[in-house]
């Protein structure tokens, strides 16, 4: 459900950088889309998946039920040695800070926090959870999307591998859907591309889950400078179809 593009968490308005890539002529057809997706998955996709998995592992799913466990407690499941983050929000706070550092584009930072807020809103409505409430209250500006996704996944009873899979699925299907809308690509051909990516998605999800307890600072930091630069330019367009 979390990975379903119809889950009402705001993702439909975002193209994951595809709109900018189309405008720049970097994606024109199904082959171009596949190359874009492979690049995105190997870079920001893998990073996002690792943070979603780590957040899922770190989120206290409420057995403590003391109302402050989740947001303030980094010592429980993580054991990563960074539960004493200076901001006092424990491992999730450390993850959020490290993800911020891996997102150099201010536009993408804002997008990620927006999608994180919307993810928590949707998750808390679908599955009311004191831990998620505490999380939302602890950082009103919003958690980065993979942190929110990981916590929501845990609250829904999922594990780090599944959180990573959801993140990767989203990283691939968001731009793919946008490509169908923007370029009028054959939807069957686009889904054939997605089907072809499944082994890579699975491989990346397993790798991300294996790093779920890694100290936040040592989590993957694969980046895609062109996506960052394009996102900054995209944010200045006067006319655009997607918010990012």
């Amino acid at each position: 459900m979390l990975a379903d593009g119809r889950f009402p968490a705001g993702g439909h308005a975002h193209s994951g950088g595809l709109e900018a890539a189309v405008a720049a002529g970097r994606v024109r057809d199904t082959d171009g889309l596949e190359a874009f997706l492979r690049g995105r998955l190997a870079t920001t996709g893998a990073t996002t998946a690792a943070f979603a998995a780590a957040a899922c592992a770190a989120f206290d799913d409420g057995t403590a039920a003391d109302g402050r466990g989740t947001a303030a407690d980094g010592s429980g499941t993580a054991g990563g040695g960074d539960g004493t983050a200076a901001d006092g929000r424990g491992r999730l706070g450390a993850l959020d800070g490290e993800f911020e550092a891996r997102t150099p584009s201010p536009a993408l930072r804002a997008t990620s926090r927006r999608l994180g807020r919307q993810m928590l809103r949707a998750a808390r409505s679908v599955r009311p959870h004191p831990g998620l409430d505490a999380l939302a209250g602890a950082l009103p500006g919003g958690w980065h999307q993979p942190v929110a996704l990981g916590a929501a996944a845990r609250a829904l009873g999922l594990g780090p591998g599944e959180a990573a899979s959801a993140a990767l699925h989203d990283a691939a299907t968001g731009p793919a859907t946008a490509a169908v809308r923007l370029l009028g690509l054959d939807p069957f051909a686009v889904h054939a591309v997605l089907a072809g990516l499944v082994p890579e998605l699975d491989r990346l999800a397993v790798r991300a889950a294996g790093e779920a307890d890694t100290p936040a600072a040592r989590l993957p930091s694969y980046g895609a400078p062109l996506l960052d630069i394009a996102a900054e330019l995209h944010a200045t367009w006067e006319v655009r179809l997607f918010a990012s």
Partner: peptide, 20 residues
């Protein structure tokens, strides 16, 4: 609110950005 090609989605199926 920007709606990603789908104005009806933002007011009907996924209202999160509008609620925000």
């Amino acid at each position: 609110v920007e709606t990603g090609c789908c104005p009806h989605t933002a007011i009907r199926d996924d209202i999160s950005a509008n609620l925000e």
